[in-house]
């Protein structure tokens, strides 16, 4: 119990004084997970929209692969990305081991299936009559896609936020490919694990508090966007 009280006290003082270690880990986490999420939105929304609209043999199989991807264990992704970016691996020339780039790649692989899968579902659940009407009005395929994505923007925002929420809280892959380097690849989750094993609970609590706050903020934004237009 002493530990908890003492830890919370130290956490508060570190937060108030904007402790540099806490600041660095927070900004690193935001940069890495932010970029990974953005990349998965930029690539995943078109891919999901296409999957949701098209019909071809093997589509269900592809969708079930995407759905499996939503539950990819981070350590498995970490293992694969590490093996790929080690100097002896196929992407060794990039020299990405222990860098933020490798972390972005790993987190992208974790977030993208969620964005693709949820976008596909969102696009599919739009009234099919709208599609019919659009093509009757002479919209091109690309125009149709654009309008449908706009129509489904709230569920797509939810998809992006779900992706971000997953990668900001993730530790396994980031630790394995990023190496937890102070001031560079040390993010909130890896710093919490390290501080706990060092017995520095105050700092661990401070970081944990910030992480919770970020996850809460993400969910608050999503909820606000979803509820904004509720019919009265």
């Amino acid at each position: 119990m002493d530990l908890i009280v003492q830890g919370l006290g130290e956490a508060a003082s570190r937060l108030v004084s904007l402790d540099p270690d806490v600041r660095e880990a927070t900004s690193a986490a935001l940069v890495v997970s932010g970029i990974a999420t953005m990349l998965s939105v930029v690539t995943g929304v078109p891919a999901g929209a296409w999957l949701g609209l098209s019909s071809f043999p093997g589509r269900k199989f592809l969708l079930s692969i995407v759905n499996t991807g939503m539950g990819l264990p981070p350590v498995v992704v970490g293992l694969f990305v590490a093996v790929l970016v080690w100097r002896s691996g196929p992407f060794g020339a990039l020299d990405w081991y222990c860098t933020r780039q490798a972390m972005v790649a790993a987190q992208y692989l974790l977030a993208a299936p969620t964005v693709v899968g949820l976008t596909a579902i969102a696009i599919q659940s739009i009234d099919p009559m709208l599609r019919l009407q659009l093509s009757a009005l002479g919209a091109t395929r690309l125009q149709t896609l654009g309008i449908l994505v706009r129509e489904a923007r709230l569920p797509i925002l939810t998809a992006a936020m779900a992706g971000f929420g997953a990668v900001i809280s993730e530790i396994g892959a980031s630790l394995m490919v990023g190496c937890n380097i102070k001031g560079d690849t040390r993010i909130l989750t890896t710093a919490i694990a390290l501080d706990t094993s060092k017995g520095e609970f105050g700092s661990a609590f401070a970081l944990a508090f910030i992480l919770l706050l970020l996850v809460f903020a993400v969910n608050a934004v999503t909820t606000w966007a979803q509820q904004r237009r509720r019919p009265l």
């Binding site: 940069v31 970029i35 930029v42 990039l94 020299d95 933020r100 972005v104």
Partner: peptide, 27 residues
């Protein structure tokens, strides 16, 4: 807007490929 964000994000992330001569990085 996403494109613009992506571009500055990549800059913030540093150069994507490091040169192999006179490397400053020690692993």
């Amino acid at each position: 807007a996403f494109g613009a964000l992506l571009a500055c994000a990549l800059v913030a992330c540093g150069p994507l490929v490091q040169t192999s001569v006179n490397r400053p990085e020690v692993l």
